Amino acid sequence: MTHDPLALPDAPKANWVDLYAPAPLRPWLRLGRFDRPIGIWLLFLPGAMGLVFGAADPLSPEVAYKLVLFALGSALMRGAGCAYNDFVDRDFDAQVERTRLRPIPSGQISPKQALLFVALSALISLVILLQLGPTAIWLGVASLGLVAAYPFMKRITWWPQAWLGLTFNWGFLMGVATMKGTLSLAAVLFYAGLIFWTLGYDTIYAYQDIEDDAMIGVKSSARALGAKGKSGVSLFYAAAVALTGIGAIVGGLSWPLYAGLAAVCLHLFWQVNTLRIDDNARLLKLFKANRDTGLLWVTAILIGHWSA
């Protein structure tokens, strides 16, 4: 099999899109980032946490069904969000080595075609959203404001990663609302903790582009922290564990939760301990490792239901 010259440099090697997708479909799949599933995981896992957090019986068939809906919705909305982000950032992306081959700046897909992709993905997602209950539906509609504003945050604030945290973890609130029909202080505290989690892992990701971002004038938490990246990520992760732990306790979860949180702590400590802000391969590995962090958090909530 010959190498595709338009394969993106930051996509996993030998991913399914490059290997198996028909050539005409590859630009569209790359536009939605289906060649790199880590983003789908990071969008889906907060929703999974919310469903389990809000469920009376987290192992019920209803929860399993809603997990499937959230997984499909996460894949579609992540694709729509990436396409919209690329539409807004197409001029910036053309100047950055890691992103210049993306479908829009490379000319494989026109800006108008990208917006049609966004609209279709959002329409299918709406069909899924309508099955989640009134409160979750309104939260889903409200999330569109967060999604629409995100690409502009790097022009406005040094902390666009915090806005991504608000956006990517909104699914936690939707998951709780789907199961309970309402939100609580416990859910808001847990959500706040997840925002800090995203702020940490996306700061790690942002260090890959720090030189290009400085050259073209794009702001990021990595540029704001500079050489203090390890200390900053440590603080973000500590806040994440503290707030999610408090939220879980306020929510009435039982003591086995602490065993799960201990595993989360150890995993995040490993990330910080091995972080090298000038090693792009290491940065990408640590960023992707947060799929496992999210799975550990889901497990912590599950075992916290024991004897709760």
Rank of each mutant, 00 (worst) to 15 (best):
A136G: 09
P24F: 03
L132E: 11
V127W: 14
A48I: 01
L43F: 05
F53L: 08
L139F: 10
L51Y: 09
R78S: 04
F53R: 10
L45W: 06
L31R: 06
F117R: 02
A21D: 01
A64R: 13
M77W: 01
V88G: 07
F70S: 08
Q95G: 03
L51R: 01
M49P: 00
A136N: 05
G50I: 07
A83E: 02
A75C: 10
S143A: 15
K112Y: 12
V141D: 09
A64I: 07
A114K: 13
Y65M: 14
S106P: 09
N15R: 03
Q113G: 12
A75T: 09
D86W: 09
F87E: 10
A142K: 00
L67A: 11
D18G: 01
D93S: 04
A75F: 08
A94D: 04
A75E: 03
P24A: 00
C82N: 13
A23H: 13
Y20H: 15
L130S: 08
L120Y: 05
R33S: 03
L42C: 03
I137R: 12
D91N: 14
G107Y: 01
L76Y: 09
I128R: 10
D89Y: 07
L67C: 03
S125W: 00
A71H: 03
R100K: 15
L25S: 13
I109Y: 05
S74T: 00
Q113Y: 02
D18T: 01
E97I: 10
A55M: 07
L29K: 02
G133A: 08
R100V: 12
A75V: 08
P22I: 05
L25F: 12
E62K: 13
D89E: 09
L144F: 15
I137D: 03
L115K: 06
Q108S: 10
L144A: 14
L69R: 02
V68C: 13
P58N: 04
S106K: 13
P103L: 05
P58S: 06
F92D: 13
A119N: 02
F92L: 14
E62V: 14
I124G: 00
N85D: 13
D91G: 01
I124R: 02
L59P: 00
I137C: 06
W28P: 05
D89V: 02
C82E: 11
W41M: 03
F117N: 02
S143G: 15
R30N: 15
L51H: 07
L29I: 03
V88P: 05
A48D: 00
P134L: 01
G133I: 10
